[in-house]
Design a protein around this nucleic acid. Structure first.
Ligand SMILES: [Zn+2]
Length: 380
DNA sequence: CATCCCAGG
């Protein structure tokens, strides 16, 4: 079995959000390991070939092995880019046709994650028991040990500075995407909680005929959705916030808001569960909407943890950022210069002060784009 | 809302 070269791994698996020209040097690499009861049966890496994505080739490869569908195989994949919608469907198909297969995807970066199609793919995987996990230091390290010709060297953080911080960002981004999709589902479920009463000719709430319960569900759903959108937008603009203070505020608000939402979901869960318990069967003789009612309760329950998880992630981001320079350069600049902690993002080689802090809003990234040759260092 | 999975041997 062939192994990756150290240099290839560092170039292809790095999780910087942008890299210097030419961008297409970051290709898809898919490293997979097939195990049964801890014994490795296959271990290899794949790339795109003849226009077919590595993931597709992977699925074909696995299918060609004609695995015994009753055995509990275990497949771990490490991807440089997360799968597109088409590949996500293929992977889900593979999972569905092999009930007992455990398929786990680790990804270094999210591919086109601001397009709805790609978000849909991620959500599909998420809801089909094919977890997509953003690689953290431990995962990079595992991948390094298994698939790289490391010549005895351990995976070291000196390879990429600030890896853990970026990983947390990406993970948070992924969580948020999945949250938005889930909330839409919740909204449609809770909407079914309003039942039509043929005798009275008007709607009533499936939860104990208490309009407050349905109202709370809908309100929480809509507001949570808006909160998600707000923070999705904030994630995008975060690197452009030049003041360290504002960045800290943004992350701190994320902690508070996420924790607060965990609380609201908790209240919602208790409220709905309680009202559901005391609803009288004779109010709803046909038992309409009971599935929806239960689903909404379950959703509220799980939301407590997803939002609490967001809060924890934000807290970790804050912790990492608080005592290192990571609140500053690391978010957007793959180049070096670790000597200047908390430096705002400005093109280092430009001479005199670019327009202070007032007046026009500087867009420093343009300075890079206009002068690609200025990029000399192979920082990563 | 950000740039991004070359193709062929
Ligand atoms: Zn694909």
């Amino acid at each position: 079995m062939k192994l990756l070269k150290q240099e290839t791994f560092c170039i292809q698996f790095n999780n910087h959000r942008r890299v210097p020209w030419p961008h297409h040097r970051r290709k898809t690499y898919l490293c997979y390991q097939l195990q049964l009861n801890g014994v490795t049966y296959a271990s290899d890496y794949l790339r795109n070939k003849r226009g077919r994505h590595a993931e597709i080739r992977f699925v074909e490869k696995i299918r060609s092995l004609k695995l015994d569908k009753d055995k509990n195989y275990d497949i771990t994949c490490y991807l440089t880019w997360s799968p597109c919608l088409h590949c996500a469907r293929e992977l889900v198909d593979l999972k569905r046709s092999h009930r007992h297969l455990t398929l786990q995807l680790f990804t270094s970066r999210l591919y086109y994650h601001w397009f709805q199609k790609f978000q849909e793919g991620l959500h599909l995987l998420y809801t089909s028991q094919v977890p997509v996990i953003v690689m953290g230091f431990q995962d990079f390290s595992d991948c390094w040990d298994r698939f790289v010709d490391h010549q005895g060297r351990a995976f070291g953080p000196e390879c990429w500075d600030g890896l853990e911080q970026r990983s947390k960002n990406i993970q948070q981004r992924l969580n948020r995407i999945l949250q938005v999709f889930s909330i839409v589902v919740f909204g449609s479920i809770v909407n079914e909680g309003y039942l039509n009463s043929p005798s009275e000719g008007q709607e009533f709430c499936v939860y104990n005929r208490n309009p407050g319960a349905c109202g709370y569900g809908v309100t929480v759903g809509v507001l949570a959705f808006l909160t998600c959108l707000l923070y999705l937008a904030l994630d995008v603009y975060f690197p452009q916030i030049s003041s360290v203070k504002d960045r800290k505020k943004a992350v701190l608000s994320d902690i508070g808001v996420s924790a607060f939402w965990a609380f609201l979901w908790f209240v919602g869960f208790c409220y709905l569960a309680n009202q559901w318990q005391v609803s009288k069967p004779r109010d709803n003789p046909l038992s309409e909407g009971t599935d929806a009612a239960r689903a909404a309760i379950a959703f509220s329950f799980f939301s407590i943890f997803t939002w609490a998880g967001q809060a924890v992630l934000a807290f970790q981001r804050y912790q990492i950022g608080a005592d290192s320079a990571l609140f500053s350069q690391d978010y957007m600049d793959p180049s070096q210069d670790s000597s200047m902690p908390y430096a705002p993002y400005v093109e280092p080689s430009t001479g005199p002060d670019p327009a202070g802090m007032g007046g026009t809003y500087q867009q420093p990234a343009n300075a890079f784009d206009a002068e690609p040759q200025g990029y000399q260092s192979q920082g990563y």
